[in-house]
Design a protein around this nucleic acid. Sequence first.
DNA 1: AATATCTACAACCGCGGTCCA
DNA 2: GTGGACCGCGGTTGTAGATAT
Length: 305
Amino acid sequence: MDGNNTTKSVNSEDELDLRRGPWTVEEDLALINYIATHGEGRWNSLARCAGLKRTGKSCRLRWLNYLRPDVRRGNITLEEQLLILELHSRWGNRWSKIAQYLPGRTDNEIKNYWRTRVQKHAKQLKCDVNSKQFKDTMRYLWMPRLVERIQAAAATNGPHTTATATTSGGSGTTTATGGPTMGYTDNFMHAPVNSNFTPENSGNSSDSYGTQVSDFGDYYGIPVANQSVNQDYYQGDQVNYGGDNSLTSPNCNYLTNQGMDFQGVDNYMEQNSQQQWSSFGLGDTTDNLWNIEDIYVLQQQFSNM
DNA sequence: AATATCTACAACCGCGGTCCA
DNA sequence: GTGGACCGCGGTTGTAGATAT
């Protein structure tokens, strides 16, 4: 952060002289030093004992989302994007659960990614982010394209190259170095829009990726209790993801048909506790899911529903 | 160059769950 | 059983930097 003292006190917190707003370098150091000595947890007492005029909640958030040494900074990689889409389709907005499968990423970061990138595209398409149309679009366009790009990047960089991920914008400009720059745009676009796709036929017909799906449940081979508009319709306990082949059902053809030995995201999940994503060498970040023509076509299809 | 708008992200808030006296 | 303290989660807001006008 900028280190400016822009904090303020409010209302009932005045007498406690609690601080709010951006953390200063001094506060960060105090928190880091205290946790290094005493460990984390018991946040309220930690805040007091560390001499921080912050709430325990604020200390916890600062530590977990920013100061923790294993927090991964930088752009969301393609694999991470794919994983987020996959897991969100299962669990909805259960960010902390999703974050468990992305080492070093925080629930806050994933939540922000979803809101700023994914919802932006839903807005572009003039449809609700939880609508079937948008979910189909993610499933038929975005995810296959991500897989394509992952493959393309792997072919270019080799499996163990560290790629460069550069973006600008927002309150931070982040550059991770170490390999060839893939750029922020736009090698996504060589994958054409599936002209056969319509929201109508998406339900039960094969698309150009060889997918035969009727819904996410079929798609993932997962029993789904309630597949209505509820974004949270996958209850975590109903999903067997711990190494079974629920994601390698025939309905995953669109992934395997891309030539990627993509044992679903299960493998990612299983490996994640040890896996550093950067080792894939695919640090690219792209939110260009489709070009103008794509958007136009999709908007027409949606508006004709 | 100045201003407006957009974008990404850090931080806060409210709520529900858990623990414990 | 219950009430308070604490914790963690998801939703929302504030703001700095980038970009457009």
